[in-house]
């Protein structure tokens, strides 16, 4: 099968089931570098499942998912924070950095932790962190690896206002440096201003896929 040269990600007629339950069917989607795609839909619509398929963590039951990127070029921030609870924040970032072949200096990691407001907790075990702190540490991990495709599964969960602002900045910055961003949100009304395109998952299908400004169903998401 031919794949478009200018895309990071291509989904063709992707459907998925959990056991006998259809999650969604017939999703077609391309993602270009620098594009920010917002995915919204009710609980159980399959937003997270779709991201897992995009990340290659799940194989679609039908259809194809093609990602142009090399291993290690996808950053994922979601419900699972990938944080080792028994390592400190500093050790967590040092581990993930070395695993990605980066060998980050202690100062680099501390600067990152400072950026996400965790410098004071750098030497504390991540298992003692609140949900929001763990999410911020996970955000620092994603910033460290500087991915070409950023998959964000309700990344604002547990974040305070300052951290959400930081997350917003990083999403925009990722788009500006040419990374593709796919981002699921329960707060589409708020988040739509940063997105280029919108995918609405409803009734087990893509109910809308197009420029954000073309979508007129926001009243249902208020």
């Amino acid at each position: 099968m031919e794949h478009g040269a200018g895309t990071l990600l291509e989904l063709r007629a992707v459907s998925h089931f959990f056991g006998p339950r259809l999650v969604f069917r017939g999703i077609d989607l391309d993602l270009a570098p620098g594009e920010i795609l917002l995915v919204i839909g009710p609980n159980g619509a399959g937003k997270s499942t779709l991201l897992h398929i995009m990340a290659g963590l799940l194989h679609p039951a039908a259809g194809s998912a093609y990602c142009r990127l090399e291993p290690g070029e996808i950053g994922y921030l979601g419900h699972g924070t990938f944080v080792y609870p028994l390592l400190t924040a500093l050790e967590n970032l040092s581990f993930w950095g070395r695993l990605y072949g980066l060998r980050p200096a202690r100062e680099t990691i501390l600067a990152l932790l400072d950026r996400v407001g965790l410098k004071a907790a750098a030497l504390e075990r991540a298992g003692t962190f609140s949900r929001g702190m763990a999410q911020r540490l996970s955000l620092a991990r994603v910033l460290l690896i500087n991915p070409k495709l950023l998959l964000l599964d309700e990344p604002a969960t547990g974040l305070d206002t300052a951290s959400r602002r930081l997350l917003d900045q990083e999403i925009v910055r990722a788009g500006e440096r040419g990374a593709g961003v796919v981002w699921t949100s329960h707060d589409g009304l708020r988040d739509r201003r940063m997105a280029d395109r919108l995918l609405v998952l409803e009734d087990k299908r893509a109910a809308f896929l197009g420029p954000v400004e073309d979508y007129d169903g926001w009243s249902g998401h208020a």
């Binding site: 290690g72 695993l99 763990a134």
Partner: peptide, 17 residues
């Protein structure tokens, strides 16, 4: 068991490893 909390296994699957 070290990789069970917080879906760390997925982190390893996504890493260039």
């Amino acid at each position: 068991h070290l990789e069970e909390p917080n879906n760390i296994r997925w982190g390893l699957l996504l890493a260039p490893v």
